[in-house]
């Protein structure tokens, strides 16, 4: 894959936050040397999975240019996103990359009608030149997510369910006809019975509309359901990445294994699976600063060198694992 065949490329990016005051402050490496690519020749759903504090949301915000990277580069269609300047450049970037946020009840101003946002988007990005022209554009976008202009017209956010608002949010993001949608935990605050409607929309965007989706989630079950490839994050690092069938079907990294095991299965017969107790971190922040492997404190397969040396990225069984267990010489 040559560089220009990539839609999005994260080239070993890091983000360091300074917490606290100038003198007493601490450094927190929220994203630590993360890299992955999305291909441009074929749309895909790429999942970034991890628990809270794994840095996955920070990655999303870095891609969306909410704040600059500390190290590394983010390339969109081959050009560095930090070079984007001015309103015209920003608008051009936003017409290609659009976000969907986590909390549907905060995505739109509760005092404004939903459809206003969609019409504004169409007008601002030059998709339509007046309100009348914008309406069919908005209707088309809403139809893609299983809604229609008449259903949404005149409605305030509180008049729709979280699932419906989230679909309106996706429809809004689709109006500038982007190539990439960054969806940050789009279903975590939506009721279970409505979740699949949103997830299915992402599938459909990939299959029918040629839109790639960066799906950020802590829910491995939906990740498995929709994505092509997945990256598992832990404390700012990607510990395992590959196709979703490889990584979730047969996880190699001890952390991915525990993660997969801990996902409750909706089948009462497998209750016994949880009998084995697991180690939990008492204090979370300490794991960020750990030298060596971030998971060493909780890992059932921990070795001496895990605590001292940062594990390398090893390619094995169709995925990349950041773990000493799979180093060639250790086998």
């Amino acid at each position: 894959m040559s560089t220009d065949a990539r839609l999005l490329e994260l080239d070993s990016i890091s983000k360091v936050f300074h917490i606290g005051g100038a003198l007493t402050g601490e450094k927190l490496t929220a994203v630590n040397n993360v890299g992955f690519q999305l291909r441009s020749d074929k749309p895909e759903v790429f999942t970034l999975a991890g628990e809270s504090g794994s840095g996955k949301t920070t990655v999303a915000r870095l891609i969306l240019r909410d704040f600059p990277v500390t190290e590394g580069k983010i390339l969109y269609e081959g050009s560095d996103t930090t070079r984007i300047r001015g309103r015209r450049g920003t608008m051009r970037f936003m017409s290609e990359v659009q976000p969907v946020f986590q909390n549907p009840f905060d995505t739109f101003n509760p005092l404004r009608r939903l459809v206003e946002y969609l019409i504004e988007t169409a007008l601002n990005f030059g998709i339509a030149s007046n309100r009348k022209q914008a309406e069919p554009v908005v209707d088309d976008a809403l139809k893609l997510v299983g809604l229609s202009f008449d259903e949404v017209n005149l409605r305030y956010p509180h008049e729709l369910s979280g699932g419906q608002i989230q679909r309106v949010s996706v429809a809004r993001a689709l109006i500038p006809r982007p190539k990439l949608i960054i969806a940050d935990e789009p279903v975590s605050m939506v009721d279970a019975s409505l979740r699949m409607a949103i997830v299915n929309v992402f599938k459909r965007l990939r299959d029918e509309e040629n839109v790639s989706v960066l799906y950020i989630t802590h829910d491995l079950a939906t990740a498995y359901y929709i994505s092509d490839r997945i990256a598992i994050m832990l404390r700012g690092q990607i510990v395992e990445t590959g196709t979703v069938d490889n990584v979730l079907g047969d996880p190699k990294h001890p952390y991915t294994r525990i993660l997969k095991e801990s996902v409750p299965q909706p089948i009462p017969e497998v209750k016994g699976a949880w009998a084995k107790s697991i180690a939990l971190s008492t204090m979370e922040v300490r794991e960020y600063g750990r030298i060596g492997c971030k998971f060493a404190g909780r890992c059932p397969n921990v070795m001496d060198k895990c605590r001292k040396i940062e594990p390398p990225d090893v390619t094995t069984a169709g995925r990349v694992v950041k773990c000493h267990l799979y180093e060639p010489e250790s086998e």
């Binding site: 729709l160 369910s161 699932g163 419906q164 009721d191 279970a192 019975s193 409505l194 979740r195 699949m196 409607a197 949103i198 997830v199 299915n200 491995l220 079950a221 939906t222 498995y224 359901y225 979730l248 079907g249 997969k260 996902v263 299965q265 909706p266 089948i267």
Partner: peptide
């Protein structure tokens, strides 16, 4: 419906959502 719509790792069969809202 609630039970049938739950995704499970290892099964990519299509899940659908209920129409409408509570």
């Amino acid at each position: 419906h609630l039970i049938a719509s739950l995704p499970v790792i290892g099964d990519k069969g299509t899940r659908s959502a209920l129409p409408g809202a509570p």
